[in-house]
Simulated assay, not measured.
Amino acid sequence: MAQAPGSAPPPAGGTPHAAPRHVTLRWSAVGLVLLGGAAGVAAREGLSLAVPDVDEVPVVIPLVNLLAAFVLGYLYEGVARALPGTPLAGRLKLLVGTGFCGGLSTYSSLATDTAVLLDHSRGGVAVLYALGTVVVGALATLAGIALGSRLHPHQPDAHELRRIEGHADTSPAHGRTS
Rank of each mutant, 00 (worst) to 15 (best):
A168Y: 10
L131E: 03
G123T: 06
L67D: 01
A138V: 15
A82D: 02
P11F: 12
L88T: 12
G6S: 02
L110N: 00
R163S: 08
V30F: 01
G40D: 02
A39S: 00
Y74N: 10
I145M: 01
V33C: 09
T133H: 11
H17F: 03
D113W: 13
P52R: 04
L94E: 10
V33E: 08
F70K: 13
Y107T: 11
G46K: 04
A140D: 05
A130N: 04
A115I: 09
I61T: 14
Y129Q: 01
G175E: 02
T112I: 05
A50D: 05
L49V: 04
T133E: 10
S7P: 02
L35V: 06
L75A: 01
C101H: 08
G31K: 00
S121L: 06
D169K: 15
V60A: 12
A50T: 00
R122D: 00
V127G: 12
S171F: 13
L49Y: 06
G40M: 10
A29L: 05
V135L: 04
L139P: 02
P156H: 01
G99R: 02
G78Q: 12
V33F: 10
G123F: 02
A130Q: 01
V127E: 12
E56F: 03
T15V: 07
S108H: 11
L35Q: 03
H174G: 14
R26A: 00
H152I: 00
V116F: 06
R81K: 13
L95K: 12
